[in-house]
Amino acid sequence: MTIPADEAALIPLTTDAALQERVTDLLQCAFRRQWWTLYLDADDRQLPVIMPMAGYPHDPTEPVIDGSGFPGTAAQLLADRLAMMIEDLGAASVVFVWERPGSAESTPADRAWARELADACRAETVRVRAQFIAHSRGIRWFAPDDFA
């Protein structure tokens, strides 16, 4: 059920089922390889920011070579930037959606990114509320046991 953004912002997403329903309403299924972030406040209400990012590296442990002088991996750089976004938005947690065409089953690349980014976020004290896979036929919960 799709609802207007101003109404959606009032509804806390306190259960996993409610959060998955919201992600499904927003994204429905995969069209290309990209990564989405959604931000939640301290009451688990969605903030009015949802960000896609295409073109992220295939290997989350790839060293960053972008001229910024960041001393770490691709996953660590993203976690560092997420920490800034969380602070700027006044968010309490973030939700990741790994969009990629294909089956609902996680791939080694899905698991590597989910694991490395979750670890990097913990190091930056960024709370990851949930991770999902958007695949060709829908949205699937990506539980920590799936990428351990």
Rank of each mutant, 00 (worst) to 15 (best):
Ala148Tyr: 07
Ala54Thr: 11
Thr125Ser: 14
Pro60Phe: 11
Thr37Glu: 02
Arg127Met: 12
Ala42Gly: 05
Ala104Ser: 15
Asp110Asn: 14
Ala112Asp: 12
Ala79Phe: 00
Trp98Asn: 06
Val49Arg: 12
Leu19Asn: 07
Ala112Gln: 12
Arg127Asp: 12
Tyr56Lys: 01
Met84Cys: 11
Phe31Lys: 11
Ala17Glu: 14
Pro4Leu: 12
Met84Tyr: 12
Val64Met: 03
Gly90Asp: 06
Glu21Lys: 08
Ala74His: 03
Ile3Asp: 04
Arg129Gly: 11
Asp146Leu: 07
Val126Asp: 02
Leu27Ser: 07
Phe31Met: 03
Ala9Asn: 09
Phe70Asp: 04
Ala83Asp: 10
Ala17Asp: 15
Pro63Arg: 07
Gln76Tyr: 00
Thr125Asp: 14
Leu82Pro: 06
Pro108Arg: 08
Glu87Ala: 11
Ala42Met: 02
Ile65Thr: 07
Leu89Ile: 01
Met51Gly: 00
Pro71His: 08
Pro144Asn: 01
Ala92Gln: 10
Arg32Gly: 04
Pro12Ile: 04
Gln131Cys: 13
Leu19Tyr: 10
Gln20Gly: 01
His135Trp: 07
Ala104Lys: 12
Ala74Asp: 02
Gly90Arg: 02
Leu89Glu: 01
Ala109Met: 09
Ala8Asn: 09
Ala75Ser: 14
Met84Asp: 14
Ser136Asp: 08
Trp36Glu: 00
Ile50Pro: 00
Gln34Asp: 08
Gln46Ala: 14
Ala104Val: 04
Pro57Ser: 07
Pro108Cys: 10
Val126Ala: 09
Val95Asn: 08
Asp59Gly: 07
Ala18Thr: 11
Pro48Ala: 08
Pro60Thr: 07
Ser93Ile: 00
Phe147Asp: 00
Arg111Ala: 03
Thr15Asp: 10
Glu99Gly: 10
